[in-house]
Design a protein around this nucleic acid. Structure first.
Lengths: 265, 265
DNA sequence: CGGATCTTTGAGAAGTGTCAAATTTAGTGG
DNA sequence: CCACTAAATTTGACACTTCTCAAAGATCCG
């Protein structure tokens, strides 16, 4: 059902709405900072390539970086491959997200970015963006905001990876997914996981089997409903409590242990 | 010995060298992008506060963000405190490092930044920096490079936290520490860990006791020499092999297991 | 409909965390 | 400068979470 909805939107984007002026996502994009005059000019700096099919990569590690990618519709994952061939999923992206921010520095992509379903993007020439900084200083602020938000997102992720157990990681992931799904115009409670269990597991730093078991556990405790990749969140409070207090919160809400290490004095 | 060296540098910084023009760290700082004329002006935007003593925080979570911090001498750690009072060490900083990059977005600090020894910093007014963007576009590039490098550093950290085991984490940490120590003008082989074992453990997502044991193991296998917080790296190759291949590399170098999950096809 | 991919489930092993106590080191004030 | 107290580190024993491996089952796609 969600999938179908997506496809309908896609068609819209690629018929009447292939300019920034008419873009339904404009409020999420840097174009929102521009006057309609500037917008016309801006339109020329942005490419709207054909939609990409599932599993297509829009950039590969080692490619030259010269543009930022903006998700118009669909979803993507980014991943790295290290020297031993190990794959590391570094992020998932929804409509409205900007991709490729980490490569401004080196001018070479370090991540693969791959679509998880039929999706469409805008491509923003980075050198053109830099040129616009002079006439549109607000763009600098916009970009700095985006990259520093990315840094913050990653700090949250570092906390998740380093400090949370399996149930907390999954609960946190589901809440984040729901929030971003909602922000992108989809349901907050009925989620369609566009990626495999292994992708999620890899992203969260655990084994695929562990994701299966943890989902099953949340299903059994009536926190969520799982049917394949479709997830319905039944009890948001329970998920939030889980992130904060760990698995115990599913049975009895208990006081916080004062003696836990690493508390502030 | 290292500590003493540090103090000598500190005194220099605060006598003859308290302007950007004369700063010994200038090549690491954004000031390097400026002509000597601009440098004079730039000097007025930068504050050189008195050195901070050990354990002093130069900013606290919730404080307004209005400046970036540049480490002139000494070392710092940054950490967050979540709703339950749990502490999370998010980074360590050496001379030449820029601190506070993640807060550009919210204009509110989300991290505490605390000195690990007597240290000195420069404070760079962020609004003043923004004003300089117009006359010195190279500053934009400089700042974007810094933030995107920070994003990359954090992606590496996410990999470490999510995928590496205890020995790999520690080996990776030591190599990184050595490289940054060297870059800051100290020894590459003789390190002084300025932080507690618990800080390291917290940063690497493990228990303090586990750090102790892992250090002991590296000592016993003649990879490093440990004496309190002073570490001598004896075998860089062994550390690098450890990061790549895990603990097996300490005993016998063996082929890569083709059947490992998450390989690229 | 059929093969490939993904997911679930179970059993067992391994790595790491937790707790407690001993020991060492660092910091402070006399 | 030494002694004392607090803080940090080490060490051991044990529990438990999570991973690994293997196989069966479900789902998707052509």
């Amino acid at each position: 059902m969600l999938r179908k909805h997506n496809i309908i939107q896609l068609e819209n984007y690629h018929s009447e709405e292939s300019t920034c002026q008419a873009c339904m996502r404009r409020h999420l994009c840097l174009a929102k900072t521009l006057s309609s005059n500037d917008l016309l000019e801006f339109d020329r700096l942005v490419a709207h390539p054909e939609p990409v099919k599932r599993r297509q990569t829009i950039c590969r590690a080692g490619d030259n970086f010269d543009r930022l990618f903006f998700v118009r519709s669909g979803t993507f994952k980014s991943y790295r491959v290290n020297e031993n061939g190990n794959l590391h999923v570094t992020g998932f992206y929804f409509p409205g997200d900007l991709m490729g921010l980490d490569d401004i520095n080196s001018r070479i992509h370090s991540d693969y970015i791959e679509s998880l379903e039929t999706s469409s993007i805008c491509e923003l020439s980075f050198s053109a963006l830099e040129e616009m900084f002079a006439i549109q200083p607000a763009l600098i602020t916009w970009l700095l905001d985006k990259v520093s938000a990315e840094i913050n997102r990653e700090k949250d992720m570092m906390y998740l990876l380093g400090k949370l157990d399996v149930n907390q990681k999954l609960a946190s992931f589901l809440l984040n997914f729901a929030a971003r799904s909602y922000r992108s115009g989809f349901s907050k409670t009925t989620l369609h996981l566009c990626m495999t269990r292994n992708d999620i597991a890899n992203y969260l730093g655990m084994a695929g089997e562990t994701i299966s078991r943890a989902l099953h556990r949340l299903h059994d405790t009536n926190v969520i409903n799982v049917r394949n990749r479709n997830i319905e969140i039944i009890d948001f409070e329970a998920l939030e409590a889980l992130v904060q207090e760990g698995e115990d919160s599913l049975i009895v809400t208990q006081g916080i242990d004062i003696n836990t290490v690493d508390k502030i004095a």
